[in-house]
Structures are given as C-alpha cells and as structure tokens.
Amino acid sequence: MALEPAMITSATKLNRVWRLVMTGFCFALFGVGGLLLSVIWFNILLLLQRNPHTRRRLARRSIAASFRFFLNTARWLGVMDYRIEGADILRQERGTLIVANHPTLIDYVILASVMPETDCLVKGALLRNPFVSGVIRAADYLVNSQADELLPACRERLAKGDTLLIFPEGTRSRPGEEIVLQRGAANIAVRCGRDLRIVTIHCSEHLLDKRSRWYDVPPRKPVFRITVQGRVDITQFYNDETQQEPALAARQLNRYLACRLSQEHRPLAGFNDASALSGN
C-alpha cells in the first residue's frame, strides 16, 4: 500500500530533525575528541616515546584512527555517508603530493582517515584553534605561514617518502563559482621535482561549505564521493633538461590542476591528458 503524501512529508521532516540533532552531537564529539587527543594521549606519547619520528608516526596514526571512528559514527547515525574510490592507492603513495579540491569543512578528515601517515600543509591560523592546534603540533604538520622554512621542509620530507596533502584553493570553494588555486602546490611540485596525485571530492548536498553553517542541514542525507585520479608526472611540466623557468612551469601546472580539480574533466589547451598522466 502506497504511503500517503502527508506521511511521507512527516517522515522527511522527522529525518531532517534527527540529522540536525545528530549533526550537533557529531560536532561536539569532534571537538571533545580533539581536546582529549591533545591534552591526554599526545602527552602520554611525549612521555613514553622519546624518538620524535616514531612519536610523530604514532600521532598521525592515532589521528587517522580517530577520524575513522568519527566518520563511522556519523554514518551510523545517518548524518552523512561517503565512499572513496581508490583508497588503496592513497595508502600506498610515497613521496608525492596529494592535491584535492575543498568543497566542505571535513574534506581533510575523510582523506586523512585512509592515509594514516600523511603529512599536511595547514593554515597558520589553525594553530590558534584550541580544538585542533594540539593535533597539528603532535602530527608535526607543515604550516604555510612559515614561508622561509616551508620549501626546504617540503623537499626534505618528500625525499624521505612522506606524502604531503594540500588543498591548493587555500580555503573552501564557493558553490557555483569557478575554483581558483593558489600556486603553492604547483611551486612545491616543480621545485621539489615531485609527482602529484589528484583527488576530487564531491558532496551531493550543500553541507559545511563556505556558505553554510553547521546547523544548515540539507533536506536529504549528504553523500560524499571521493575519487582518486591519475598521477601527474612532473617531468611533463618541468625537468632539468628543459630551459623553462620554474615559475612558468608552476603557472602551467597550476592551470592544469585547476582544470582537473574543477571536476569538469575537459582537457586544457596545450596539454595532453594521456601524456601528462602516468601511474594508476
């Protein structure tokens, strides 16, 4: 027997109220979890593990595990759902830059949950946030406000096999507007001679974007789709045998990344996707 329209409407409203309340709960859970990690667990690590490299690795794995718990809780409560196409590729990456678009507030949480030892380039302003500053320091993430030290630090960590996660937009994108990339990721890739792996993030609803508050719950449950795409071979843009200036190569690479991260997947004039991509 078909349900009456009034019953469907009531069920939809009830579901939205439930997701609003559970969204608030998840935000509180995330904040409390960040404080507990910073105040208790990371201090225990500091006492028990004197080797800074081992301590950093354990901290990053702890962060990834806590993010998986948070995401599984949000999924179980019906707040959101997500699927990652190519998660195994991200886990196996070494010595590369992972570049992704940035539509929502939890993009980093989703990606870091499947990359237990990833490094990340974060905004200096986050060091003033009491809920995440301890996490940033314990994981020893790179801070983009340290301009003089940033490039040498990136080169050193990438050479050691670290994977560096960057959102080249610098902030969340605005729905309906063309994305604009800062040139930091392209400059790091060119000047460090490292390949990039492209990841695109799509959310089915407007949720936690630049124009939304946490309580702006969409009418339907949002579903995140994260797609791990091809690896960009940096030698297609810059190598020691060319006479091209690094700054020009970085501009060209930045244009290419903007095209790929726009999710439109149209080839950019002057570039051949088949020759610019290699790997998985």
Results as ranks from 00 to 15, higher is better:
4 E>L: 12
7 M>R: 15
9 T>N: 15
10 S>W: 14
11 A>P: 09
11 A>G: 12
13 K>Y: 13
15 N>E: 15
17 V>D: 08
18 W>G: 11
18 W>L: 15
20 L>I: 10
22 M>V: 07
26 C>H: 09
29 L>T: 08
32 V>H: 01
33 G>S: 01
34 G>S: 02
34 G>R: 01
36 L>Y: 01
37 L>E: 04
38 S>R: 00
42 F>K: 00
44 I>L: 01
46 L>K: 02
46 L>H: 04
52 P>F: 00
61 R>T: 12
65 A>M: 10
65 A>V: 04
67 F>Q: 01
73 T>I: 07
77 L>T: 13
77 L>N: 05
79 V>N: 11
80 M>S: 06
87 A>E: 15
87 A>T: 14
87 A>F: 11
89 I>R: 13
91 R>C: 15
93 E>N: 12
94 R>K: 14
94 R>V: 02
94 R>C: 10
103 P>I: 01
103 P>E: 10
104 T>D: 08
104 T>I: 01
105 L>P: 04
107 D>S: 03
107 D>Q: 07
110 I>D: 08
113 S>N: 06
115 M>G: 09
117 E>I: 04
118 T>E: 07
119 D>N: 14
121 L>A: 06
122 V>M: 02
124 G>D: 08
125 A>T: 14
128 R>M: 08
130 P>W: 00
134 G>L: 03
136 I>S: 01
137 R>K: 09
139 A>I: 05
139 A>E: 03
141 Y>F: 12
141 Y>P: 02
141 Y>W: 09
143 V>S: 04
145 S>L: 04
151 L>C: 06
154 C>T: 05
160 K>Q: 15
162 D>C: 07
162 D>P: 02
163 T>G: 11
166 I>Y: 03
170 G>T: 06
173 S>T: 12
173 S>M: 04
175 P>S: 11
175 P>C: 13
176 G>D: 11
178 E>N: 05
179 I>Y: 05
180 V>G: 07
184 G>A: 08
184 G>L: 05
185 A>C: 08
187 N>A: 09
188 I>P: 02
199 V>I: 08
201 I>W: 03
201 I>R: 10
201 I>T: 11
203 C>Y: 02
204 S>Y: 08
214 W>K: 10
214 W>N: 08
214 W>R: 08
215 Y>I: 00
221 K>H: 12
221 K>D: 10
226 I>D: 02
229 Q>W: 14
230 G>K: 15
236 Q>I: 13
236 Q>F: 13
244 Q>W: 00
245 E>S: 01
251 R>S: 00
254 N>Y: 02
257 L>V: 06
258 A>G: 12
262 S>P: 04
264 E>L: 14
266 R>Y: 06
268 L>M: 07
269 A>R: 14
272 N>M: 04
272 N>W: 09
274 A>H: 15
276 A>K: 07
280 N>P: 14
